[in-house]
């Protein structure tokens, strides 16, 4: 790993002024799990690393009945998983965070760092998109808030501008919304998801409305399956509907191919994942319902 200057601001304004001073020659470090790997493999060689480790105010997790959940960007995955607030107001988020990567990484990696790194082979972004999350970004000119959809630009690329820091993630109050999340590994011995899927919908007397169906890990950035969402609107899920939705999802997903799996395989998993998450949401058993 190349030598670098290590800066540890003790407040957000100090952090922002350090970023302004060092410009593109610096990297922001949150938990550091992904950044250090990239630096050790010399994919990144910053002159300066600005560690946010002392900004404890960015670790807070809070809930407000009107505003919903606010998760500080530096909350570690284990903090999110173990938070009684998260467990009470969005248990599916706690479940997602508690199954991510492995215990040691959950103890160190942060939810904000995860989103900023924008590695597709991970879980939070898929879930948070389905939850309708927004993010707050601090810059020298003040804060801006934008939908997570707009924040996630591409493979390892976000809307974060030079000199900005992601400070918080907001989830709207769940209301009567049902949320499910599933992670698919190619084999039980792999730990990064090959496909993940999140479903968020309002179930009104059985019929679905305001459906959000997001797949990730299969695609450069998590993809909203818009046609499938439209198809599902107003429908009550049964085996035939789930199968039809699965076919639609398989058709509209634009999967990537890499060393871990090719596009055709990922497409098949997306079909499967779609069918199963819909049947799970409807309380039906997918094991007996092969498409």
């Amino acid at each position: 790993m190349r030598p670098f200057d290590f800066l540890e601001p003790s407040s957000l304004p100090e952090a922002l002024s350090m970023l302004a001073e060092h410009g593109d020659a610096c990297c922001i470090m949150a938990g550091g799990t992904a950044l250090l790997l990239a630096m050790r493999q010399r994919m990144l060689a910053p002159e300066t690393v600005v560690s946010l480790g002392k900004l404890d105010e960015l670790r807070d997790i809070a809930f407000d009945p009107d505003a919903g959940l606010r998760i500080g960007a530096l909350a570690r995955h284990a903090d999110v998983a173990g938070s009684s607030i998260v467990q009470a107001h969005c248990p599916a988020l706690a479940g997602m965070a508690g199954g991510l990567a492995n215990p040691q990484v959950r103890n160190q990696g942060t939810i904000g760092g995860n989103l900023c790194y924008a590695d597709p082979a991970t879980d939070p972004a898929t879930f948070l998109l389905a939850a309708g999350a927004e993010v707050t970004i601090a810059g020298r000119g003040g804060e801006r808030r934008l939908p997570l959809r707009a924040f996630l630009v591409d493979y390892f690329t976000t809307a974060l501008e030079s000199g900005e820091i992601l400070t918080a993630i907001h989830l709207p109050p769940p209301g009567s919304r049902q949320m499910l999340y599933r992670r698919y590994l190619r084999t039980p011995a792999e730990h990064r998801p090959v496909v993940n899927i999140a479903l968020s919908a309002v179930t009104d007397g059985g019929a679905l409305s305001d459906v959000r169906l997001i797949v990730g890990a299969a695609t450069p950035v998590p993809q909203a399956l818009a046609q499938t969402e439209d198809f599902l609107a107003g429908k009550s899920v049964n085996a035939a509907i789930a199968a039809e939705a699965a076919a639609l999802a398989g058709a509209e997903v634009e999967p990537l191919s890499d060393g871990r799996a090719d596009a055709a395989f990922r497409r098949q998993i997306v079909r499967t994942a779609t069918r199963r998450i819909l049947l799970d949401a409807a309380g039906l058993d997918w094991k007996d319902n092969a498409a």
Partner: peptide, 10 residues
């Protein structure tokens, strides 16, 4: 933690 993913400085 995995100490190979963490700086001593952290």
């Amino acid at each position: 933690l995995k100490s190979c993913l963490c700086l001593a400085a952290q």
